[in-house]
Design a binder for these strands. Structure first.
Length: 842
RNA sequence: GCCGGGAUGGCGGAACUGGUCAGACGCGCCCGACUUAAAAUCGGGUGGCCUGCGGGCCGUGCGGGUUCGAGUCCCGCUCCCGGCACCA
């Protein structure tokens, strides 16, 4: 624990205060041994019982069984870091409450767990520590598994998977081959950063100011053949299907932004000197007359053609090289726009005007067509460029009234075209239609849609990942490895540091393999898959986790899926969650699954903060679950992380808070123990305490099941416990109230609940049906009628629920307090809200 | 710039469909009981101002509005958080 290092705010180091708290828990020697809450003993005992009963294992149902009461509860696949952190504690506790709750409601619950065990962190840790990624990964998995079990999460460990095991990645490869066959996985040349001195591919983050992070050499762009999934084929569906998902609005908004659909037109410009047509994409076809120059991205294929015909191409080529070495962010962050004039010209199809062609890195090759018509009068970026290089700026859109400075980017309905030939005077929307229609007629353009979403480049020049099952043969070319030869095992490697094109290239014996098609000499693909491929289908594997003939059986997957409740961080919204959605659409089209969306309902957890900021090692404000478990026990920690605040918002951890939760658990423990011993048995009377218990059942059931409002459910149980305590252990309803409280708190604090349930003379609370509120007890036969005069509350009177509206008014009017305020006035209006209030308006 | 979310006591938060003097539950703080004392525990209090102790007035970021009634709905702002962003 990072004692005393967090912001200097805490008077005492955490370690200390927790140890004090711990000793005080044990401290009270005067209480009977039996009535002392000892988290450790209780938790170990019940974890053993559950393990022996295999309580959380769920067998696969008959695929024809009714699936109206199934719940697939899933937390995002964890990367197996050395130890659990507070984020895990929150996420898995949320899922666990839901899983335990639904099980007790008689649902068939799938609540599995696994590990995202391929990937850079393990590889980097291995490079740092000098071990093998596999050893480090497996050690971490073993450790984190123990911690997860100590948290008491009801996970089905019989279905555990880990992405780095051949049993799993065999099927990752198998699925890749299906996508490959369907034309959804393909290779194309794409630029990577290459350090000529280290002879290695660099990750984007390893490039600073166009230089290698390690040796400082100037980085080059290399076009490497890389693997892509055709995510863009589903761009429209990925966007439109968001509508039907029960996800938080901000998550949907993020995906919409990410997909970035925009409607416009593609327009063909003729390049005069090459006598070639080049398409551009624009969202403003109405501004076509305002195009005063034309820009190609530095990576545009025509740039080299142009350079080849220039008298002095060196300046242009140097610019292209410089642009290639820059990272995307560096290009975007550039203070001033840069570019080079080519001396070539493009012809505007609408008026035949010749405009100069420039090459500039503010135009991106991978959006639109990699070329633009520049309209500086109505586009900020083109305007900046025009200013920098003294290019003309023309106005072609004018607001209906008033002045407007250029660049004028807005497009009000009333804005009209000027300087646009025969389209002058047309309002912007009509002008767009008219110009596109004219272009289409002339064969110079058409309506077009462009997306920000790119195809997913999933090959990595790294060792610790799933090998891509492809062999390159001189005669046959690119050949997929046949299914029977899967898995393509990741070879053991002495040196797996990034070097050359990819570390696997160094495993010469592994690389050389006969071509599966012709038997001639072949070489294996040496790149590995992005770990997001592993996590795009893991939730399918859980359904049929021990199948060694296929990744899964379709009927079984179709029975369990889609995931009913997905839980995880909002930070995975745009990558993982889009990739997994893409996978389901692809697998459905291939016929491997019967649905198209993986996650029906999604809950985003907040972050546990300390001292106002997210816990992080670098800030030194980390509280580890290990220490908390030691100091307080799993139940109080589970209760507290869900009690601090709404689980989907960031929350501030405080030592006082968790200590308050320990107090609550101890109070519950003592109170229920007393009730178990002394409370009368038999049917509870229809008393206020009994009613409170039923109201609490209704509230907690709704809070967990419908609202996912975990904090308010705990508060409701606390209210019940408070009322029980006031009534005392001898109250005739005490036993029922205690049983209800224990039963309702069980999803949150399963160990102590089980212990208390046993004390109350029962067993197996985890399998006990969830209590149901008696509706007869929820509707009271009297209620408190609020009487207002002019909207101000003047009295509250107990009345029978059976009274009619007229009778309510009569009672209200009869109240002396109300009379005092009605005095002298004439009642103009009377509002009656049944079962709530009467309001007299004077 | 575009898009999304938010602002309630000393603090975390509650109030779900406009309807119980807004503030549940917890933390903190204050008072009391138990104790030689302390801790623990238990009981009580705790939005602000005024009070003749009956109560009165004000109060949910700011300014307007709708309504018998607004934390909740509408319009206009301020600030905070998040996503996208040379995306043509």
């Amino acid at each position: 624990m990072q004692g005393g290092t967090r912001g200097g705010a805490a008077p005492a180091p955490h370690g200390l205060s927790q140890r004090e708290a711990f000793s005080s828990l044990e401290g009270d020697s005067r209480e009977a041994m039996d009535d002392r809450y000892d988290a450790k003993t209780i938790e170990e005992r019940w974890q053993r019982v559950w393990e022996e009963a295999r309580a959380w294992h769920v067998p696969n149902p008959d695929p024809t069984a009714d699936r109206s009461r199934k719940a697939y509860v899933l937390e995002m696949l964890p990367y197996p870091s050395g130890t659990l952190h507070m984020g895990h504690v929150l996420v898995y506790t949320i899922g666990d409450v839901l899983a335990r709750f639904r099980r007790r409601q008689g649902w068939t619950v799938l609540h599995p767990i696994g590990f995202d065990s391929f990937g850079l962190p393990a590889e980097n840790a291995a490079i740092r520590e000098g071990g093998h990624p596999r050893e480090i990964t497996e050690r971490n998995i073993a450790h984190i598994t123990r911690e997860m079990k100590r948290m008491g999460w009801s996970l089905d460990w019989d279905r555990v998977m880990a992405a780095h095991t051949p049993e799993y990645y065999r099927w990752t490869q198998w699925l890749f081959l299906r996508l490959y066959e369907a034309g959804l996985a393909y290779r194309k040349a794409a630029p990577v950063k290459w350090c000529p001195r280290d002879q290695a591919v660099l990750a984007n983050e390893q490039v600073h100011d166009g230089r290698c992070e390690y040796c400082g050499a100037e980085v080059e762009a290399r076009n490497l053949e890389q693997w892509f999934f055709r995510t863009t084929r589903y761009a429209d569906e990925l966007l439109d299907a968001l509508e039907g998902l029960d996800w938080p609005e901000r998550v949907k908004a993020m995906q919409r932004n990410w997909i970035g659909r925009s409607e416009g037109a593609e327009v063909l410009f003729r390049i005069e000197e090459l006598d070639r047509d080049v398409p551009v994409f624009t969202t403003r076809p109405d501004t076509l007359y305002g195009a005063t120059f034309f820009v190609l991205a530095p990576e545009h294929p025509l740039v080299e053609e142009i350079a080849a015909r220039m008298d002095d191409p060196e300046q242009l080529r140097a610019y292209v090289r410089r642009a290639a070495a820059k990272r995307g962010e560096e290009r975007a962050a550039a203070e001033h726009k840069t570019g080079v004039s080519t001396g070539f010209h493009a012809v505007n199809p609408v008026n035949g005007e010749r405009i100069p062609i420039w090459v500039a890195d503010y135009v991106l090759m991978d959006y639109g067509t990699g070329a633009i018509m520049a309209v500086p009068g109505h586009d900020r970026r083109d305007f900046d460029f025009a200013r920098a290089f003294g290019l003309p700026v023309v106005r072609v859109v004018e607001p209906a009234e008033g002045e407007s400075e250029l660049p004028y980017e807005s497009k009000e309905r009333s804005d009209r075209l000027v300087n646009s030939g025969r389209f002058d005077g047309l309002p912007v929307p009509e002008a767009q239609r008219a110009i596109v229609a004219w272009l289409a007629e002339e064969g110079r353009g058409r309506e077009a849609v462009s997306y920000r979403l790119r195809d997913w480049g999933f090959s990595r020049q790294r060792y610790w990942g799933c090998p891509i099952p492809i062999v390159y043969c001189e005669r046959c070319g690119e050949v997929p490895v046949p299914d029977e030869e899967l898995p393509v095992l990741l070879p053991e490697l002495e040196d797996y540091r990034p070097q050359g094109i990819a570390p696997l290239a160094g495993a010469e014996e592994w690389v050389r393999t006969p071509c599966p098609r012709c038997g001639g000499e072949g070489r294996r693909e040496v790149e590995t898959m992005d770990t997001f491929v592993d996590s795009s289908w893991y939730f399918l594997r859980y359904c049929d986790a021990r199948n060694d003939e296929a990744p899964f059986k379709r009927e079984i997957v179709d029975w369990w899926c889609p995931v009913d409740q997905y839980i995880g961080g909002i930070d995975h919204t745009t990558m993982h969650m889009i990739y997994a959605r893409f996978f389901m659409k692809a697998l459905n089209d291939i016929g491997l699954v019967g649905f198209r969306e993986p996650f029906q309902r999604f809950f985003t957890n907040g972050w546990v903060q300390l001292g106002g900021t997210k816990m992080s090692k670098s800030k030194g404000n980390v509280i580890g679950p290990d220490e908390l478990l030691e100091a307080y026990g799993a139940d109080p920690v589970r209760l507290y992380v869900l009690f601090i605040g709404p689980a989907d918002e960031d929350m501030e951890w405080t030592d006082e808070g968790i200590e308050g939760m320990v107090r609550f658990v101890r109070r519950l423990y003592r109170l229920v123990s007393e009730v178990a011993e002394r409370a009368p048995r038999g049917e509870p009377p229809a008393s206020a305490l009994t009613r409170k218990a039923h109201e609490t059942i209704a509230k907690v059931t709704d809070d967990i099941g419908r609202r996912l409002s975990f904090n308010t459910a705990i508060a409701a149980v606390m209210e019940l416990v408070n009322e029980l305590q006031r009534a005392g252990a001898e109250d005739p309803a005490a036993r029922f109230a205690a049983e209800t409280a224990v039963s309702l708190i069980q999803p949150y604090a399963p160990h102590v609940a089980e212990e208390l349930w046993q004390r109350l003379g029962h067993e197996r609370l985890w399998a006990e049906p969830w209590p149901e509120a008696d509706p007869a007890l929820l509707t009271r036969d009297t209620f408190e009628l609020v009487v207002q005069v002019n909207g101000k509350v003047r009295d509250r009177i107990q009345v029978e629920a059976s009274l009619s509206e007229d009778e309510l008014v009569a009672r209200a009017k009869a109240s002396p307090k109300v009379q005092a305020h009605l005095d002298g006035g004439e009642i103009r209006k009377t509002i009656v809200v049944p079962r709530k209030l009467v309001n007299f308006v004077l």
